[in-house]
Design a binder for these strands. Sequence first.
RNA 1: GCCGCAGUAGCUCAGUGGUAGAGCGCGUCAUUGGUAAUGACGAGGUCGAGAGUCCGAUUCUCUCCUGUGGCACCA
Length: 647
Amino acid sequence: MDIKLPDGSSRALNDGANGYDLARDISPSLAKVALLAEIDGTVCDLNTPLHDGAQVAILTRKDEAILPHLRHSCAHILAEAVQRLFGDVQITFGPATETGFYYDFYRETPFVQDDLAQIEAEMHRIVAENSNFRRSVWTRAQMLDWCQEHGETFKAEHVGNIPADEDLSVYHQGEWMDMCRGPHLPNTGAVGKGFKLMKLAGAYWRGDANNPQLQRIYGTCWRDTKELSAHLHMLEEAEKRDHRRLGREMNLFHLQEEAAGSVFWHPRGWTLYRVMQDYMRARQIEGGYQEVKTPQLLDRVFWEKSGHWDKYREDMFVLPEGASNEDTGEGKAHALKPMNCPCHVMIFRQGIKSYRDLPLRMAEFGSCHRNEASGALHGLMRVRAFTQDDAHIFCTPEQIAEETVRFCTLLQQIYQDFGFSDIQVLFSDRPKVRAGSDAVWDQAEAALSAAGKAAGLDFTHNPGDGAFYGPKLDFVLRDALGREWQCGTLQCDFVLPERLGANYIGADGAEHRPVMLHRAIIGSFERFCGVLIEHYAGKLPMWLAPVQAMVCTISEGADAYAASVLERFHKAGLRTESDIRNQKIGYKIREHSLQKIPALVVVGAKEAETGSVAIRRLGSTEQHILPLEEAISTLCLEATPPHLRNI
RNA sequence: GCCGCAGUAGCUCAGUGGUAGAGCGCGUCAUUGGUAAUGACGAGGUCGAGAGUCCGAUUCUCUCCUGUGGCACCA
């Protein structure tokens, strides 16, 4: 038979030959390092038989494509090690992840951290044993017998979930085996030493909280120890830019247990927050939005009417009846608002709206409370009290397309200004269970998807994942470490205007129902602050930096000059502080550099005499001596928020 | 909410069945210096909260709280 190779050449092999035979035919040295075969674009075991005319590539350690399979094989080795060491363990699943693998086990007694070292040592032993991975195909009955015999109830349950027309394959390695689709490396030795067990975690069987909890062991796995240490180093770097750590070190905010999930903003952190908010407000006004402010605490009846009570009451903060005054037991039941939209509909409903009022764009920096599960809280990223850059656009169905384009344009501008250029858009269309007629969905989906494309955004289709009340676009941005953050969203809603009785008078003189577009760009200010801190590793661009310049004196003799410099900087609108402490200049430089202050303004006798300043920028060791006014105009230029530039 | 881990000075952490220690930070004093740590001295702790075992608990046990890594959740 004839096999085509990646370089366009072809090779004649005997019938029944496999990838290994091909590798050996090409060269004995290739056969030694061959790990997997990519047959017609699908990665397969090396010993998978080839067919005539197949396009085949032999994969070796050099190919990144082996990584998922290397990791998956490593997961099997983990599972074998665990079953060797612990008698009372059932195996379940163990897939590859983005940087490694995990395996979920069932065991009455949980694993503890100290078990990991022992397990890892056993894994190295299994690698050293260098057993072949051997695939075989079993019948359902054979498999179930095996599960019965070995007490593997979870695997047995899974047998029933494998499509009837699919082969049920098992992979052996030495004495051990697992039911698995494969493919795998030729032998356990091929996994090498580039792996490490990372952490223990709980996970539910089949991802469902109603099912038994399994014990998950995470590992990371790479092609060699060099790649492994590079990855571990990257993790250390990521830890250094953790916003919780930087928030403390830079004195931006803190959290404490009496207010779990709510932020104490310190002066510097609140400055960042305010600068962001001022910027967002300005951009929104440019974008044709009107800003409003609505109540935090509303009668329970209101939430019942809006439909939130039924759906979200578990996660709402509620004041039960009588709680408003503990002494007298007076007061109706209330709840803190978990979102702003119903309140915005209330404003829309005041007075009679005409089609001439549409589209009506109503924005609020809406402070919301959601009683998030305790295990979900995480620094600024997941909190219980937060403020959204929320807005609702009331419009006609015909206006959806244009409003979407306007929104995408605004969003792109804002992300760019904050320093994010890699934006991914997910378009989610009608779910199975939904409200509204198909005709309206047709129109909304077409409008959204066309508008997304028109705005020139990267576009991924996410079928069936829309909200029950309408299709949506989600905007995911990628930060400096390549992590993804879903921040922006645009959701069509045909339901809430109806539930809460919003309408307008059309050109025909009749009442019509507006469509509501729920939209946010940064999502929550709290979370976005966290994202910014991590994206910039604390080194915020000048316009966002809480303190933009620090005037540092060389010695006491320069105090008076420093005070006049500080005053000039303040007058120029630069957020500036001064450090006239009795310390050496090196000490001050170090301290304010660690505080990530963008411009250090050093003044001593020389500067005082010539009316100049020595500027040292964060991240550089150079000093630039400039006349005071020139320094100010240079820094001011950079410190100008994006919406005020070029005007 | 579930599973693992953790909670000791402002921060990072050590430590012990007989009520505690370091470094940094903070304060005072000396030093007046030229770009990432000047020196000396000093203050600072209900060892997360509650209960139990014990003559005695920060240490052992239990419960709770909070944090943390996951899972589930995320309008």
